[in-house]
Simulated scan of single mutants.
Amino acid sequence: MRRRSLIAAAGAAALLLAGCANTPRQDAGTLAIGKLTTALPDGVTLLRPARGAPQLVTAQGQARTGQRASANDAQTRFLVGSISKWIATVAVLRLVDQGRLALDQPVTTWLPELPPASRAVTLRHLLSNTSGIPNGVAQALRQDRAAIEGSRITPLEGALRYGTGAPAFEPGSRFDYSFTNWVIVGGIVERVTGDPFQQVVARLVLQPAGVRDTGFADAAWESLPHAALAYAKDKTTRKSSAMPPMVAASGTVYSTAADLVAIADAVYAGGLLSDRARRELLTVQHAAEDYALGCRVREIGKNSTKHTVVWNSGVFGGYKTLLAYAPANGAAVVLLNNTDIEQAEQRETAQKLLDALLQAR
């Protein structure tokens, strides 16, 4: 099955880019894509050379093993880890566009229960992981992991319980990739809207983007149609992670490759956000990490061939995911994996595929 899939992928790659102009550089890009698609890791891969162009979706490996074994395919849903932060940020920016939130207001504007020292922390600091608020969730996990992973408390409850530490450094001066930043983001959204965070994201982002296979995982996640299970590298040992609701903004979204691209199209080329909000989403806040708001933004290529790329990666147990998207023309690479691939390997594969796509334009 894998051999048939790879042969089909190589042929589809050639068809996908058959319309490219016949120049040496473009031929090199097309040839590179054909070669790369014959050696893809297990999971689902989506390639698109430009907005409006056909998408190539290929699948390798198993979504599930054992008695209910099923192969990965274009409809397979994966947990996408920290790509959830980008989706959460889009929801926040929609609320900013509506005048209900402001990026540079103190978080105590909406959560006055937080300590006075948190008045120096803005919503922008949370979304860029530069708040300095101690990672109370991580501290609680070290003390009693089972209790935290089994908790059903909401983002608002979690923010008021675990986000109460005074900033450990001047907000905006350092980068700290902290769960707690995102628990507080979720709590602010719940306080402002009066609705559960997951419902707000569905209403403001997922429904307008027209996606049907994306949502927030809960205890029933594995029973959903087309849900991939996560495995260790031996592809037989199950890996799983609990999903307390309070960390929804940080990493509990599930999606498909096509849905992730549809969301990106709605964000960067549709009417989902104002021009100002899109600029905020693409503005790097911490240069050493290429981190903007909820995602990384990188410049790839040189001089006239330079491209701005939104680079989103995620880890959740054995799930490893990556979305690379060029807002200017919609070139996209998505890699979804459920066998605990090394992130460095996944990143290298995505970079090669994206370089080839951009060369083949």
Rank of each mutant, 00 (worst) to 15 (best):
D195G: 08
E113S: 11
V183A: 09
A324H: 03
I7G: 15
L36I: 03
E222H: 12
R279K: 13
G251T: 01
H307E: 07
F197V: 08
Q60I: 12
L103S: 06
F169I: 09
L282P: 01
L36Q: 10
S118R: 06
G61V: 03
A159R: 13
A138M: 09
L126D: 02
K352Q: 14
P196W: 07
I153H: 08
P225D: 13
V247Y: 02
P24V: 10
A350D: 03
S151M: 11
R25S: 13
T23L: 12
P245G: 13
F316W: 11
V44F: 05
L323Q: 07
A257Q: 06
I188S: 09
T164A: 15
I263L: 03
A277I: 01
A147F: 02
L114V: 05
A8C: 14
L293S: 01
G34S: 10
A138H: 04
N337E: 06
V205A: 11
N129Y: 06
S223T: 14
A28Q: 15
K320D: 06
V92F: 08
S84F: 00
M243E: 11
T30I: 12
S240F: 09
E280K: 07
L353I: 03
V185Y: 02
L335D: 01
S70K: 14
D259V: 02
A269S: 08
L357D: 00
S223P: 02
T214H: 08
A168N: 11
R298L: 12
Q359V: 01
A232Y: 02
L111W: 03
